[in-house]
């Protein structure tokens, strides 16, 4: 592989990987075979290693109307794939904002106070692995008396409570990792508590905070499908669920690919941002 300059192989190699994956996918997916019955009629049946898995070609043929007009709105449940994605992104953005707004100060408290950590770390460790599928019904119950906003609030609650933890934990680690020297500078200058927080602690913690923010965004996006399935909010997860109920498996594949690509792009964007805050 020495023949290629690095930038070319950086493009070429992933491309090769994608092609290989598509070929493998096509190979194991189901295909339609026609066989002549004894009575002369043609009968269609499926064959293949995974009979019910639509291959890439079938998927493209069946779902192209969602892709070529990505922002179309034909009916409530028949919209372009990016339009569905947009609905989901909006709700994720709101829930994510709540997660950061709660998680960052909580992380600071944990990082600053040993007794606070001792008190609440076990609880955090218990709440952290709880699945969104478990939080969602609680959210619905909690906000059931808010009328039309109930679904939205339950969704925000679930996203926030699931996505918060990486921010909390990374911020806490970042605060604990602030070099004593920086704090000594603050002490020698007699900076006030508020000044020390603003001028020293927050900038010193930023790289860790952004690592947390990136991981939290990943989780927020992961949770959206579950949230939309349970609440019936319009969005890409809800679209996936409806199409499953309609037996349209190609749309499921399209949704999976879209969710994956969007998640990947979000992560890229966040890590660019993260790198900007890395201080040497």
């Amino acid at each position: 592989m020495k023949k290629f300059p690095p930038w070319l192989s950086n493009i070429l190699m992933p491309f090769v990987g994608i092609v290989v994956t598509l070929v493998l996918w096509q190979a194991i997916s189901g295909r339609v075979v026609q066989s002549r019955q004894p009575d002369g009629t043609m009968e269609e049946s499926k064959a293949g290693l995974l009979k019910d898995l639509p291959g890439p070609i079938t998927t493209w043929e069946k779902t192209r109307k969602y892709v070529v007009e990505p922002f179309a709105k034909r009916e409530e449940l028949d919209q372009g794939i990016l339009r569905f994605t947009w609905y989901s992104l909006v709700i994720v953005a709101k829930g994510y904002a709540i997660a950061l707004a709660l998680g960052t100060p909580l992380g600071f408290l944990l990082g600053l106070s040993k007794s606070f950590t001792k008190m609440f770390d076990p609880i955090i460790q218990i709440l952290r692995p709880v699945s969104p599928l478990a939080w969602m019904p609680l959210g619905v119950v909690l906000f059931s008396n808010t009328g039309r906003a109930a679904n939205e609030l339950a969704a925000l609650f679930t996203i926030a409570v699931c996505a918060m933890w990486p921010t909390v934990l990374n911020t806490a680690v970042g605060v604990r990792a602030i070099p004593q020297d920086y704090l000594n500078v603050a002490r020698v200058l007699k900076l006030s508590r508020w000044q020390t927080l603003r001028r020293i602690m927050i900038p010193a913690t930023l790289p860790y905070m952004f690592t947390g923010y990136r991981l939290s965004l990943g989780i927020a996006w992961l949770v959206i499908v579950a949230v939309e399935m349970l609440t019936g909010r319009i969005g890409i997860g809800n679209f996936l669920w409806n199409e499953y109920n309609n037996g349209l498996y190609t749309s499921i594949v399209l949704c999976i690919v879209t969710i994956g690509v969007v998640g990947f792009l979000l992560d890229r964007a966040m890590s660019l941002l993260e790198r900007r805050f890395k201080t040497a």
Binding site: P179, D181, N184, V185, R187, V188, P203, T279
Partner: peptide
Amino acid sequence: TGPGPDRGIVFQNYSLLPW
């Protein structure tokens, strides 16, 4: 009884704020 700006320190490892 505590640190103060009447005693300026040059720390062993500079301790400049990198940002």
